[in-house]
Design a protein around this nucleic acid. Structure first.
Length: 878
RNA sequence: GGGUGAUUAGCUCAGUUGGCUAGAGCAUCUCGUUUACACCGAGAGGGUCGGGGGUUCGAGUCCCUCAUCACCCACCA
């Protein structure tokens, strides 16, 4: 006890326990309103829209990465002196949310249809109300410096208004149409989904070959074949050259005779199976396209619940899975089954939400036309497809990393009309009314219901979630006072909203590459159309986070799954942030495991202890900073380099490089060398200066710990409010002297270590060594060699400084082998340089600075070699 | 079938317009308890940069080719 009291007083505890600080610090930031944007400010502006998480979501490590990168960019720009807006919000996530609520209802023995639309929506609102705060508080735990005063939600009045406005505008421009098209129908969820939401799961299935009149046809899906009456072959296929295009055949089939027509079309692959196939236009996109091309009949076989219709005769009402073997059996009994192959690899289409099997259906749906050239962009009428291509091609928007531009173009080239209607209730209901009957042609599309509502019925469908999120960058910046004022047009709403005028286009969209089609492309589409502006100037794509063994993280595998909330609790948000950017490359997946997080927790603790040490120093009252020792000049030169380098890296999205600079400075320069040196040649005011400036540099990357230390330095203001500062001047020749000192210390340590000498003493007439002798003594743990103490003293020269050592001949000779190795390396290097410098072509073609550098390198190397040689001679002679 | 990315130390990865005597973290090994820190310090070992060819004064970096892995898109009757 007594002993403890005698220990020097320390402000800070010995280890940094993040959770003791982070919540308080975040609250302080909130209280100071330092995250709030100020559009009236005369500073330059910088803005990012947070990709809105699902309101019912729980923070996962993918969110953490996005939040970390965006927060770094945001804080970095604040430090650069910008007025900054980072706008948060949540997405209503139509299908996902409806799905969750339906499951809850199912448990209660209820269903959405039992409740009815209004009650169901109320129920969903209730459910959602609680969970939005959950995700937001988890975002705060990451340290994200969002402007919460501007938080938005996709179902806000303003955003809903904009959704309707854009729908109506597109409809009036003829860009939205209603039509019968093949859609991806999910019988489980009773809705269709967009092409991009369909996933394919590979499975083994049976491939059946049947006799179909004179043709043999193969299929994995006999149950849809009832109404097949078109055979398609390739026109170049010689096996079928005796038959003519449009020739008809009477064919015995599942339920008796059918009349079938032959179609010859290039799209058929003659190498697959028999080269002949039948088509089912109602339940296949490709078949549907063929049917359109040749104007063929289309018949529905399967209903919306996945059951067979009347056309199936005796099989009517059966589900597909039940009917399949029975139909095969029937065809077999009729002698029409020729072959069954078992291991046919087949890709099953499923909904990415809920994994229900997709059953293509023809349905009357709403679409956005991507090919109609009526959209005004840069003074020309273009199609959405053309605009999507041109903004990237012409550099209006830059994608980082660049190679994703190819993926993007590839997707756009294959883009079909975007199906925007969904048969669910949670979301933006279509602003569409029908007179009397849904199937009749009288349609009203408007912001408000028809004035005389008698006989009008609103479309029951809602819009694809991505329709509203595609408006996110600008719909969130519109003044909310306009939401219900229909006297103000959409154009005026934009023009009169200061936030929109100030912060749009946003500077960068930061998101995962997996969302480039869903969201990035659609934002460009909707935003250019509505505002005439691009939504963002740059797109930074990050990769997916994988577990340490390279697998996708999943909650079902708790061994490898990293839960950010657990990590924050145990190691702190900063450790997680640092781990996420260590080794990060744009667009590439990263592996994340505990070890990386622990490394960075250790790094935080190192910073903590450096601060602890510095705070313990007696700082003189005047607070004046002055450079005294060579170490002082050196560390300032390093700090300068680090600080400037980090700023440059962050300007260029080089997060990992910035990380390494900070890591290197703290551990290898400040802690290992300068602090140790400063214990001998004290300069506490400078130490504090270095710490403060280093904290400013680190703050965007590790905001919590830097702020915690800043607060403990008795600072009255918040670190979060500080801007980058110029580092004071230094003398570079003095800085270089210290560099030489470092070389000497390293060499002496090596001698002690490799020659296993416990006590080493040196003597020197060198000014550098004598000025810094106490430092060397401390760093190497050596003694001063008394003048004339021994006649067997050996002379060494390192970094141009000579000194004598008290080692005996046998030990000294062991040092020879070290020197020989060094000499070998140096010889090699010199040879290469000589070769290069004697090469005529090199001298002619290489840039002058480079040649100059080579010459200097050679000079230095020769000098080193000379020293080593003389050293070797001394040792050999001793 | 079309496309993209990757292949660098035992592991995870940097290496920006070619200038490299190829780096970092982790792991391994040796040494060390020096009052900021053992969540520490001082050191060491470890690589013919996937193979082959080419362009160049010069290639980890650019081009061609092969191999392996991962992913995306389309198709799969």
């Amino acid at each position: 006890m007594v002993l403890l009291l005698l220990w020097p007083y320390m402000n800070l505890p010995k280890t940094y326990i993040a959770k003791d600080y982070e919540k308080n610090i975040y609250q302080k930031w909130l209280d100071s309103k330092c995250f709030e944007a100020n559009p009236k400010s005369t500073k330059k502006h910088y803005s990012i829209s947070l990709p809105p998480p699902n309101e019912t979501g729980v923070l996962h490590v993918g969110h953490s990465l996005g939040l970390t990168l965006e927060d770094i960019l945001i804080r970095h720009h604040r430090s650069l002196g910008y007025d900054v807006l980072w706008l948060p919000g949540t997405d209503h996530a139509a299908i996902a949310t409806e799905n969750v609520v339906e499951k809850i209802l199912l448990k209660e023995g209820s269903s959405k249809h039992k409740l009815g639309r209004e009650q169901f929506i109320n129920r969903t609102k209730q459910f959602v109300a609680g969970s939005r705060e959950t995700i937001n508080s988890q975002i705060k735990a990451m340290g994200a410096s969002l402007d919460w005063s501007r938080s938005r939600y996709t179902l806000d009045d303003t955003l809903s208004r904009v959704v309707s406005e854009v729908f109506v505008k597109m409809y009036n421009d003829g860009l939205i149409y209603r039509g019968y098209r093949i859609v991806n129908w999910d019988p489980n969820l009773q809705t269709n989904v967009s092409d991009d939401e369909v996933e394919y799961i590979e499975e083994k299935a049976k491939l059946y070959t049947f006799q179909f009149g004179p043709f043999e046809i193969s299929t994995a899906r006999p149950e849809v074949k009832f109404a097949d009456k078109y055979i398609v072959v390739n026109p170049k296929d010689k096996r079928y050259s005796k038959y003519k295009h449009l020739e008809t055949f009477d064919i015995e089939w599942i339920n008796g005779k059918v009349k079938a027509t032959l179609i010859k079309d290039e799209s058929v692959d003659p190498k697959f199976g028999t080269g002949a196939m039948t088509i089912t236009p109602w339940h296949s996109q490709v078949d549907f396209d063929l049917a359109l091309k040749y104007n063929l009949d289309k018949e529905q076989i399967i209903d919306l619940n996945g059951k067979l219709l009347d056309i199936a005769g005796e099989f009517k009402g059966m589900t597909i899975n039940d009917a399949r073997p029975k139909i095969v059996q029937k065809l077999h009994s009729k002698g029409l089954l020729l072959k069954v192959e078992d291991n046919y690899l087949h890709k099953l289409a499923v909904n990415s939400r809920g994994k229900g099997t997709i059953e293509p259906q023809i349905r009357l749906q709403w679409f956005i036309d991507v090919n109609k050239e009526v959209v005004l962009w840069k003074g020309q009428k273009k199609s959405f497809k053309q605009i999507l291509q041109s903004v990237i091609r012409e550099g209006d928007i830059k994608i980082i990393p660049k190679h994703f531009e190819k993926t993007y173009f590839n997707w756009i080239n294959n883009l079909r009309d975007w199906c925007i209607s969904r048969q669910i209730w949670w979301g933006h209901q279509l602003p569409v009314w029908y007179k009397d009957n849904v199937d009749k042609n009288e349609i009203y599309v408007g912001l408000k219901p028809p004035e005389d509502q008698t006989g009008w019925k609103r479309d029951q469908d809602t819009l694809d979630t991505w329709f509203s999120s595609s408006l996110w960058t600008f719909s969130t910046l519109i003044d909310q006072k306009f939401a219900k004022d229909y006297s103000v047009s959409l154009k005026d709403m934009l023009n009169q909203s200061l936030d929109f005028k100030t912060y749009h286009p946003t500077n960068v969209l930061e998101t995962g590459w997996d969302i480039i089609f869903f969201w990035v492309a659609r934002m460009i589409l909707s935003t250019t159309y509505t505002t005439g502006q691009i939504p963002f100037k740059e797109v930074y794509l990050h990769g997916l986070i994988r577990s340490e063994n390279g697998k996708k993280m999943s909650k079902s595998d708790p061994e490898s799954n990293i839960d950010p909330l657990e990590v924050i609790e145990e190691y702190g948000a900063d450790s997680l942030r640092l781990a996420l950017i260590q080794g990060l490359t744009a667009g590439r997946d990263i592996r994340l495991g505990k070890s990386k997080i622990i490394t960075n927790r250790n790094f935080c603790n190192k910073l903590w202890n450096v601060a602890r040490y510095i705070e313990d120093q007696e700082i003189s009252d005047d607070d004046r900073v002055e450079l005294k020792s060579e170490a002082d000049h050196w560390i300032i030169s390093r700090l300068n380099l680090t600080s400037k380098g980090v700023i440059k890296d962050l300007n260029n999205y080089r997060f990992s490089d910035a990380y390494h600079k900070i890591y290197h400075f703290l551990r290898d320069e400040l802690a290992d060398w300068y602090i140790e040196a400063s214990k001998v040649q004290e300069n506490p005011n400078l130490l504090k200066y270095i710490l403060k400036n280093f904290l400013i540099t680190c703050h965007p990357i590790a905001p919590f710990i830097t702020e915690a230390i800043w607060q403990s330095l008795d600072q009255e203001d918040l670190l979060a409010l500080k801007t980058y500062k110029e580092i004071i001047e230094f003398d570079s020749s003095k800085a270089q002297n210290f560099e030489r000192l470092v070389t000497i210390v390293k060499e002496l340590r090596l001698i002690k270590k490799s020659l296993d000498i416990k006590k080493l003493a040196i003597n020197s007439s060198s000014g550098l060594i004598n000025r810094n002798f106490e430092t060397i003594k401390k760093l190497v743990r050596i003694e001063k060699l008394e003048d004339g103490a021994s006649t067997s003293n050996k002379t060494l020269t390192i970094a141009e400084e000579s000194f004598t050592l008290n080692i005996d001949n046998t030990v000294f000779k062991k040092y020879l082998s070290d020197l020989e190795i060094k000499k070998g390396l140096l010889d090699n290097f010199i040879n290469n340089l000589n070769k290069r410098l004697q090469n005529r072509s090199y001298l002619d073609k290489a840039p002058e600075e480079l040649i100059e550098e080579s010459r200097k390198q050679l000079q230095d190397a020769l000098k080193d070699l000379e020293l080593i040689n003389s050293q070797i001679i001394i040792i050999k002679n001793s």
